[in-house]
Structure formats: C-alpha cells, structure tokens
Amino acid sequence: MARRHCFALDLVDDAALIAEYEARHAPGAVWPAVLAHIAAQGVEAMEIWRTGDRMVMIAEVADDYPRAVAAPAEIAEWETLMWRFQRALPHAVPGEKWVPMQRIFAFGDQQ
C-alpha cells in the first residue's frame, strides 16, 4: 500500500512568474528526465496544489521511498530553473525547498 507524503513551498509573489511556473507544470511540459527521476525514487503519484503563492505537494510513494538513485544532470538544471519561481518557507533550513508537512487531523481517526 502506498504511503502519502505532503510538502509545502511558496512561490515568488508575482503573477507573471506564477503563470510561467504553472505553464512549466502543465501536462507534457515537465522535462521527461525529471519525471523519470521522480518515479525512480519511488513516487507512484504526485499532485501540486496552489492557493495564492502557497503550494502543497501530495505524493503517494512506495514502501521503499526514497530510493537512492543517481540524478541525471537535467535535475540540477530543472532545480536551478525552479528556484527562479520558488521561495523557501520562513522555517525551512538553508537550501530546503519542499518542506515536509505533519498530518494533524484525519477524519477517519475521529470516528
């Protein structure tokens, strides 16, 4: 059974940059090497949601996630490009992008 991980990250609060960021994540726009690397790490499904300049990423991952896999050169290029649009959360450690979130409520746990 897949596990779910959630992460948060902010975007630069600029409408044009946000529009470009979304365009770079439209169907077919993400570089194939990036998608392959995400899958190789054990990610089975992933979604990114946005409100304003705040984003949440939800990843369904294999039991052995994260798998140690070598990153092709395109990954560093993609990450450098993405930093143009992204800004770390105030409580992120230096260099950290997507900050893991802690689940504090589950509807099923309430019953």
Score class of each variant (00 low, 15 high):
14 D>L: 03
31 W>L: 13
15 A>W: 00
29 A>E: 11
47 E>H: 13
59 A>Y: 03
110 Q>N: 03
56 V>T: 07
77 E>T: 02
41 Q>G: 14
47 E>I: 03
51 T>V: 14
102 Q>Y: 02
57 M>R: 12
7 F>Y: 15
106 A>T: 12
103 R>C: 13
37 H>M: 10
26 A>L: 07
97 K>T: 13
109 D>V: 07
63 D>F: 09
20 E>W: 00
13 D>W: 10
59 A>C: 10
13 D>G: 08
53 D>P: 11
64 D>P: 04
45 A>E: 13
32 P>G: 12
89 L>Q: 12
31 W>C: 09
92 A>S: 15
7 F>A: 05
71 A>G: 05
9 L>K: 03
82 M>C: 09
54 R>M: 10
14 D>M: 04
62 A>E: 15
89 L>P: 06
99 V>Q: 00
51 T>L: 12
36 A>P: 10
98 W>L: 02
18 I>W: 05
2 A>G: 00
76 A>Y: 06
99 V>P: 00
39 A>R: 14
20 E>P: 02
71 A>S: 14
111 Q>L: 13
66 P>N: 11
104 I>P: 03
12 V>A: 05
4 R>I: 12
36 A>G: 10
8 A>H: 01
85 F>Y: 15
24 R>P: 01
64 D>L: 02
101 M>K: 00
89 L>Y: 09
71 A>C: 07
17 L>N: 02
60 E>H: 09
40 A>T: 07
50 R>D: 03
64 D>W: 03
109 D>K: 09
1 M>H: 04
6 C>N: 06
17 L>Y: 02
45 A>Q: 12
47 E>W: 10
14 D>E: 09
108 G>I: 00
32 P>Q: 10
24 R>V: 00
18 I>D: 03
86 Q>P: 05
84 R>K: 11
59 A>M: 15
44 E>P: 01
50 R>L: 11
85 F>S: 04
39 A>H: 13
43 V>D: 02
3 R>W: 00
107 F>M: 13
5 H>V: 01
55 M>K: 05
94 P>F: 06
9 L>Q: 14
80 T>Q: 09
28 G>V: 15
66 P>S: 10
80 T>K: 07
21 Y>T: 09
94 P>W: 03
60 E>L: 08
100 P>C: 03
86 Q>S: 04
79 E>K: 15
34 V>R: 09
54 R>D: 00
4 R>L: 14
66 P>K: 06
82 M>E: 13
100 P>I: 13
59 A>E: 08
106 A>M: 03
93 V>Y: 08
111 Q>S: 06
56 V>F: 13
78 W>E: 05
30 V>C: 04
50 R>Q: 08
72 P>R: 11
65 Y>I: 10
12 V>G: 01
34 V>G: 09
27 P>Y: 11
19 A>T: 09
20 E>R: 08
73 A>L: 08
66 P>T: 10
83 W>M: 11
81 L>E: 14
76 A>G: 13
57 M>E: 10
109 D>I: 02
7 F>V: 07
90 P>Q: 04
11 L>K: 06
94 P>S: 04
8 A>L: 07
37 H>D: 14
